[in-house]
Design a protein around this nucleic acid. Structure first.
Lengths: 238, 238
DNA sequence: ACAAATTAGGACCGAGTGGTCCTAGTCACC
DNA sequence: GGTGACTAGGACCACTCGGTCCTAATTTGT
């Protein structure tokens, strides 16, 4: 264990920017396992892809971003650019799932309240990038849905998992909802409205667009709530 | 005039596919004016761009699609690929404006009814391509909003003209609407929902997604209608 | 001490990119 | 009949793309 710490110290002094990364001539890789490197590449790629799109992000850009030594170094970890894209998509979904979808599952909060919190979370997520990045899934969808079947299928799966999470929440909340609420349709509507809102926000470079649509979306959901049921977000949101 | 017709006959026999286009060695261009050729190129480019996106559509692809003789032939009409993209965008907007936005202006129909017809028109437009193409504006927006400021600004303008058309319709319908209806917000919501719906439809390859969202959107709009006002699309849509 | 694995790094490939340049044929018009 | 505008067509440019290959340095396991 002392040995481990010593290594860390050595490398921290050697390279301050990537404190746990060796630089210079080829050498050991004690602190960075295979999966760590992959993670590092995936992170760099995710940033670039969300900024420029998949097609406009070259492998060389990713190599530069992840500070790799060269092409073959990259192709040691990923067999193709395509595979990289798939994994970025997976990773981005997991990251989103952590922060967004987890809210939908939270068992201690009223389901409809959770839905509002989820919408707030989407807004908050966009606020971080100043509404400039948009949804990674929506971007890839618009770029590759027609051109690349492999991506299309994977993005469809992402939306489906997202929708199913909302559906089960809606099912949980069914005592509070009107009898004729179609959970499939409503879940799709929520996702479409959010994706569209994020896109519009990106084009307008104005976060208030997203905020307004989010508020309207909450009102639309409230429209499905039984008159007697507890749902205080009706018009008080604004 | 007889001369003109004679020319037409000659060229029709010479080239049956593009009946008004000369092929073979360089020659006259009586029937195809400058703007005709540009139109021809723009049409080919519009198709390609809506299928593959702007970045993935090469100038050579456009040349092939428009059956031009070579690069310099293309660059005789457009000074760059960028300029081509801008004009495609304009043209696509005009085409959309013809079919979609014209409905919003129709003075003989009740404004709210027009709004429903407009939504129907968007659905119909998507049905033509089997929901495969998506919105040309939305696609370009997702692809280029971050990467290319010139496109971003132009797409923003398209959405703005679209939104303002809806806003003025909403203003026209204000006697039928609740007093607290925010026309700016509602118009944005409608556009965002439609854009999102078209995107989802493209990913799922299922037109019923768009149809469902369109129906929900109509219900959302109906929510803003005064209780007494004429608006029979409340729940009867399904 | 030695072999296997891992990492690094660069040269290289064929195909395509947007774009320029040059030549030449054909037209309307003077 | 000559001239300038328009059209055609190909050669060519520097650059980038995704991807392969080969060599060498270094560490780990034995």
């Amino acid at each position: 264990m002392g040995w481990f710490l010593e290594r860390i110290a050595v490398y921290e002094f050697t390279d301050q920017q990537n404190s746990l990364l060796r630089i210079g001539p080829p050498g050991p890789n004690i602190l960075l396992t295979m999966s760590d490197r992959r993670t590092q590449i995936l992170d760099a790629a995710a940033t670039l892809i969300s900024e420029r799109g998949f097609t406009s992000t070259s492998v060389d850009d990713v190599i530069k971003g992840a500070k790799l030594s060269g092409k073959s170094h990259f192709y040691h970890y990923f067999k193709s650019k395509e595979e990289l894209g798939y994994e970025v998509l997976n990773r981005q979904f997991e990251r989103f799932a952590e922060r967004g979808l987890a809210i939908l599952r939270e068992p201690m909060i009223d389901p409809l309240e959770r839905l509002n919190l989820f919408i707030d979370a989407v807004v908050a997520l966009q606020s971080e990038s100043g509404g400039r990045r948009g949804s990674p899934f929506g971007n890839l969808a618009a770029e590759l849905a027609d051109a690349h079947e492999g991506f299309r299928v994977r993005i469809e799966a992402v939306f489906e998992r997202w929708a199913s999470q909302i559906r089960s929440l809606l099912w949980e909340a069914r005592p509070q909802l009107h009898d004729d609420v179609d959970a499939v349709r409503l879940s799709r509507f929520i996702i479409a409205a959010l994706e569209g809102a994020v896109l519009m926000t990106r084009v307008k470079r104005d976060l208030s667009v997203l905020e307004g649509i989010a508020a309207d979306l909450k009102r639309f959901i409230a429209m499905h709530v039984r008159d007697g049921a507890a749902m205080q977000h009706n018009r008080a949101v604004e």
